[in-house]
Amino acid sequence: MSNKIVSIQIGKINSYGDKNSKEFLDKYWESAFFKEVTDGKIWVGKTGLAGDEVADKVHHGGLEKAVFANSYENYGEWAEFLALDTIPFGALAENLTISELHESSVCLGDIHKIGSALLQVSQPRKPCWKIAKRWSNKKFTNEIYKTGLTGWYYRVLQEGFVEAGNEVSVVSQDESKISILDANMAFANPIKYRDILEKIVTIGAIAPSYKISVTNRILGDFSLEYMRVD
């Protein structure tokens, strides 16, 4: 299987849970996490795929996190962790499920040509509590954080159409060649991998908010509260 789009997903904002519940897995929440597979050509604009919605615009979406992608190769590992035979496309709310590309091969600043769109890898996805909510498993968010299989965000350099089956061509790669996986491992272990974090902040193509997060991580002034499940 070559580098290609296996599936495309878009989602609408919906509400879930009970507003009166104090239990984490039952608490009320709003999200567009539950995405549906979409066929045919989809327009990719500067702020994302046509028809895709974002509930939490503080932490998701926008120019620097316009499109969320994940590796099809992660699905077996996730299914095993969740003790499921299979899991549907869009399992982690990604817009693009891509084969033969992985956190270990995709690098910060990479530019990918998909269909008529040109996309640039701007940062890893930060695994938040919604992953645990979606799968009714309090440990799943931390598992994604620990393994570094987070997926990655794109900014849109050139708008265009994409569809399932499109090849993903690597047009160029930043000279630092720091993979999403290396970046995630360094973020999780800032003392051991300080040198990698220091290289990351020199990459001009990373999202400004991600640069701030990495800088704060180096300084030891960073909260992982967004992952909290209780």
Rank of each mutant, 00 (worst) to 15 (best):
D174W: 00
E167R: 08
T147A: 07
H112T: 09
D182F: 02
I191G: 03
L181I: 06
I180R: 02
I114Y: 11
S176W: 10
W135P: 07
L181V: 08
A186L: 05
L101T: 00
E159Y: 07
I131A: 05
S179F: 01
N137Q: 13
W135G: 13
L118A: 01
I98A: 01
G148A: 02
L119G: 01
D182I: 05
W129Y: 15
Q173N: 04
D174S: 06
G151C: 00
Q173V: 10
S105I: 05
N189A: 11
M185T: 14
G151K: 01
A186Y: 03
K133Q: 10
K138T: 13
W129R: 14
S105C: 11
D182R: 13
N189F: 01
N142M: 09
T150E: 06
A188W: 00
K113A: 12
Y193G: 09
F161I: 04
A183F: 00
E103Q: 05
A186C: 05
N189L: 02
W135D: 02
A188L: 11
I111C: 01
P127E: 14
G109V: 05
T150P: 04
M185L: 11
S179D: 08
E163H: 15
S176I: 04
S99Y: 10
K146G: 05
A188D: 14
C107T: 01
V162P: 08
L119W: 03
E143N: 15
I144Y: 12
H102I: 03
V168L: 04
P190M: 00
A132F: 13
G160Q: 13
K177L: 04
Y145L: 12
E163W: 12
S99A: 11
S172H: 05
D110T: 04
I178Q: 02
S105F: 07
Q120F: 03
V121M: 05
S169K: 15
S172R: 13
K146V: 11
K113H: 07
L108W: 00
E175V: 08
T147W: 09
S172E: 08
H102F: 06
S136T: 09
I98D: 09
L157Q: 13
S176K: 14
W135T: 06
T97I: 01
I111T: 07
D174A: 04
L149Q: 12
E175W: 08
L149A: 02
G160T: 06
W135Y: 09
E103T: 03
S172G: 12
N184E: 00
E100W: 14
E159A: 10
Q123A: 09
I191F: 12
L118Y: 00
W152N: 05
V168Q: 07
S179R: 04
V121Y: 01
E175A: 06
T150Y: 01
G160F: 13
D110A: 05
K130I: 12
Y145A: 03
K177S: 09
I114T: 13
A186S: 05
T150R: 02
K126L: 13
G109Q: 09
R134G: 10
K177M: 07
S176R: 15
M185Y: 03
R125Y: 09
K192S: 03
E159T: 10
I114Q: 02
P127T: 04
Y145N: 07
G109S: 06
S105H: 11
I111D: 11
V106T: 08
E167M: 15
L118H: 10
K133H: 14
G115F: 11
E175K: 13
T141D: 10
E167G: 14
S169F: 06
E100Y: 15
A183H: 07
P190I: 00
G151S: 06
